[in-house]
Design a protein around this nucleic acid. Structure first.
Length: 275
DNA sequence: CACGGATCCTGATGGC
DNA sequence: TGCCATCAGGATCCGT
């Protein structure tokens, strides 16, 4: 479900409200992608210091250790400060509850590709196994052209798949990869190491632009996205190419094409986007 | 070490 | 209406 913008919007919707809360209970539902890595009851009494984001992970700092949250393909978080949701019994796909003195943080994830993982510190092996290989943050001023272009030159895979891999720059998922490549006018099948410095700069700016814009719009192109306050689902950002196979390009009118790369759908305009 | 494919799981959708 | 195949926002593991 979530790419970087959805994760960030989710974070913004509850981080302030949960800060300084104390964990009063933990409920674990069906197994998620990875085990929690600690006895759930051992978290009771700890204090939530804040919530950061790294790529598509949310990092919840506790006064001792931290929790890493990932929403996978179909996950979403809800947080209720009042008692309304706090008293609601879990629905079938509610697989993790963090009850705090400020409210209930609940993970709903039908496909269970998401996870909540405890780590003693961000530098610990369990955290680094998940975070250690991640690329730079695109919206934190660390995403510079020299490094980006140098990294692209070392990769022979298609640029779409290199973006998705997340080890050069994080947060670009399947929707925004197609959208960014459209904005940069680059064909998704172009090998990364064949991209000129000039085109790498266009792509860098396109990635920043599409992600920042989606965060600012408070949501995304996702049909069923809702933040942790339950505000949902407006399709605010109009996709240029994603899920538009057979429809006319908004720029030139030619028909958008769909192809499959690494078992993932890719959409592009064969006229606007050059090999 | 980078690449391509298989894999985890459930629900929605479309064709017949 | 039922059944089956296909597809879906992610990321890891494995063989090459």
């Amino acid at each position: 479900m979530p790419e970087l913008p959805e994760v960030e919007v989710t974070r913004l919707s509850f981080a302030d409200r949960i800060a300084n809360a104390h964990i009063s209970d933990v409920r674990v539902g069906k197994p998620l992608r990875w085990p929690l890595g600690v006895m759930p009851t051992s978290l009771i009494g700890r204090k939530v210091l804040g919530v950061r984001r790294r790529g598509k992970y949310l990092l919840m700092d506790l006064n001792q250790g931290l929790l890493l949250w990932h929403l996978g393909m179909s996950g979403s978080l809800s947080f209720s400060s009042d008692g309304a949701i706090a008293n609601m019994s879990p629905k079938p796909h509610d697989h993790f509850d963090l009850q705090t003195t400020h409210g209930l943080l609940r993970l709903n994830d039908p496909r269970r590709f998401g996870a909540v993982v405890y780590a003693d510190s961000e530098a610990s092996a369990s955290a680094q196994k998940l975070l250690g290989h991640l690329g730079v943050e695109p919206l934190a001023g660390q995403f510079d052209l020299d490094t980006f272009h140098k990294n692209l030159k070392q990769r022979s895979a298609a640029i779409k798949q290199v973006l998705l891999a997340g080890d050069i720059v994080v947060g670009v998922g399947n929707i925004y990869a197609s959208e960014a490549l459209f904005l940069a006018r680059i064909r998704p099948t172009v090998r990364a190491n064949r991209i000129s410095r000039l085109r790498a700069e266009k792509l860098r700016l396109a990635v920043i632009d599409v992600l920042a814009h989606a965060v600012a719009k408070g949501g995304s192109t996702l049909r069923d996205f809702s933040n942790a306050e339950g505000q949902s689902g407006y399709f605010q950002l109009e996709a240029n190419v994603y899920d538009r196979a057979g429809l006319p390009c908004r720029q030139c009118g030619h028909l958008i094409k769909r192809l499959v790369q690494g078992q993932r759908a890719t959409y592009f305009c064969p006229v606007c986007q050059k090999p």
